[in-house]
Each structure stands twice: as structure tokens, then as C-alpha cells.
């Protein structure tokens, strides 16, 4: 009977640990910068947002994909926290870097897990997914992109058909967003409708420690619940913000609701079209 208890204890412990992500500081060995373009309104080609920078920070057995401005903001917050001057950041919000996305993708190859971290208002959420083996089809086409000799590959991912160009000159099986699994780093990637594109503009070897503390402070929820919270926030941001301690006048409430709805108006073209 005692053995059974011990076995159950070990089982529950392993289940608990498997729910956590590994958030200790990691040494970044390589850093890639991608220029991203996307079309927020699926029906309007002119709505395209261009040349936003994202970083892919690669460490042993994994990587972190994050908006460059978000990284700068994190660094500013950390520095001011260390100096005890955090409060000063609030005095001039206009001067702070403005990320296009607070989304962070953490790939953990050793655990076969992908963590997606997102911020809704002032609260940060994260959910995990299995790191999928993408069903890439490698083709014979070769071309030079940004001095790298690249080979073509295609895949269908979450409802979109993509064309990728990867290089075996950089033998890292990673890429932007949730893409990975090719025998070389992805240099260029776009869907066949050209609504989303990712192009490598810089690659460098590095050796510095990156904090992953943000994952320690994020609430772990399911992807389904995250979507519910996000949609509820877009529909009525006031409920979420009041839950975070905000107190508004009626006029400010109306102003915020209008601003959030305007921003999300025609922002209908999600990169993931299906939930598979």
C-alpha cells in the first residue's frame, strides 16, 4: 500500500512539473532578427503593416520569439527596477517603446512543448501546446537570399499554405513564430496569399544571459480560455481593467471602449485560421 502511495506521489509530482515551463535565465547562443509584414484586414491589401522587427533568441534546446520593442521595453523595466526608479517610467509613457505585439513564443525542444504568452490589458497569460512536427515538403528549388544559399520547403499550418526558404549554412532547426523543424534556419517564409511574411534581416552569434522571469508571473490557462478572455476584453475592456484596480469616469469608459473597438475593427485576419 505504501509503495502505491509513493508511486502516486511520483506520478503527481511529474504531472505538476510537466505543467511548468523552465523559466531560469538562459544563455542566448544565436540571435536572429526578422522583418515581419502582415495584412490585418483579409479583404483589404492596402491595410498591410510592414517591416516590424521581431527577434528569435536561440538557446540550447529552445528559443524565444518576441517583438523587438517588447524586448527593449522589458530591458527598460528591468533596468529601472534594478535602480529603484520604476515609477519614473510612468511619467512619460510616450517615450516608451511601443510593441506591436506582447506575444512571446517559447519553444522547449527537450520537453516537446511550446508556450505562448500574451498580455490582455495589464494581466499576462500563458498556455502550452505540444511542439508539433510540421509536415514539411522539401523541394529542389535553390536560391540566394541575403547571401545565404536557400532551399524551398512548403507546409500547411493552421489553415494557411506556406512557402519557406531555409539554409543549411545555419544548421538550426528553428524559425519565426511557431515554425520549426527544417534542416536549417528559416530565412524567408510567407503564406501563398502573401498576407503574412517573415524575412531574416540579421543573424549573429551571441553569448549573454536572457531573463525568462516574465513566464514566472504569467497565469497558466488553456488556449480556449485565453481566447475567451481576449474576446471578452475586446468586446468590453472596462471589466478587465476594473478587475485590475482601475477606476474610471463614465466618459473615460466610453472613450476606452471606442478606442479598443476602433483598433480591433477590421483586425480580422488571424495568422492561425484553425485550432488544429
Amino acid at each position: 500500500m505504501r509503495s502505491l502511495h509513493i508511486i502516486l506521489l511520483i506520478f503527481y509530482s511529474s504531472v505538476l512539473f510537466s505543467q511548468e515551463n523552465n523559466t531560469e535565465n538562459k544563455t542566448i547562443k544565436h540571435q536572429a532578427t526578422y522583418s515581419i509584414s502582415w495584412q490585418p484586414d483579409s479583404l483589404n491589401v492596402n491595410s498591410k503593416i510592414k517591416n516590424k522587427k521581431y527577434k528569435l533568441l536561440m538557446f540550447e534546446n529552445g528559443s524565444l520569439y518576441v517583438d523587438s520593442n517588447r524586448l527593449k521595453l522589458d530591458s527598460l523595466i528591468q533596468d529601472s527596477e534594478n535602480r529603484g526608479t520604476s515609477f519614473a517610467l510612468l511619467s512619460n509613457m510616450n517615450s516608451l517603446p511601443q510593441p506591436n505585439s506582447n506575444n512571446r513564443i517559447l519553444k522547449q525542444y527537450s520537453k516537446n512543448t511550446l508556450w505562448s504568452l500574451n498580455q490582455v490589458s495589464g494581466t499576462t497569460y500563458q498556455y502550452s501546446e505540444k511542439l508539433k512536427l510540421m509536415d514539411w515538403k522539401i523541394e529542389d528549388d535553390i536560391k540566394i537570399i541575403n547571401t545565404y544559399k536557400c532551399q524551398k520547403a512548403t507546409v500547411n499550418y493552421s489553415g494557411r499554405n506556406y512557402i519557406a526558404w531555409f539554409t543549411s549554412e545555419l544548421p538550426i532547426n528553428d524559425g519565426p513564430y511557431k515554425f520549426s523543424g527544417l534542416p536549417g534556419l528559416i530565412i524567408l517564409l510567407h503564406d501563398t496569399k502573401n498576407q503574412y511574411s517573415f524575412e531574416l534581416i540579421n543573424f549573429q552569434k551571441t553569448n549573454y544571459l536572457q531573463s525568462f522571469d516574465v513566464f514566472n508571473n504569467a497565469k497558466i490557462i488553456s488556449k480556449k480560455d485565453y481566447k475567451k478572455i481576449r474576446n471578452a476584453y475586446i468586446n468590453n475592456p472596462i471589466v478587465q481593467m476594473e478587475g485590475e484596480g482601475a477606476v474610471f469616469s463614465e466618459e473615460t469608459k466610453r472613450q476606452i471602449i471606442k478606442m479598443i473597438r476602433n483598433k480591433n475593427k477590421n483586425n480580422n485576419n488571424r495568422i492561425e485560421l484553425t485550432d488544429d
Binding site: 490585418p40 511601443q98 510593441p99 505585439s101 506582447n102
Partner: peptide, 15 residues
């Protein structure tokens, strides 16, 4: 800062 990004920030990439 999170509230600022969501209320005042540019159009966010829908993932």
C-alpha cells in the same frame, strides 16, 4: 504599461 499598449498602442498582430 500593459494597459497603455492595449488602449493606446498600434494595431496588434492577431495571432
Amino acid at each position: 504599461i500593459g494597459q497603455n499598449n492595449n488602449v493606446c498602442g498600434t494595431k496588434i498582430m492577431p495571432v
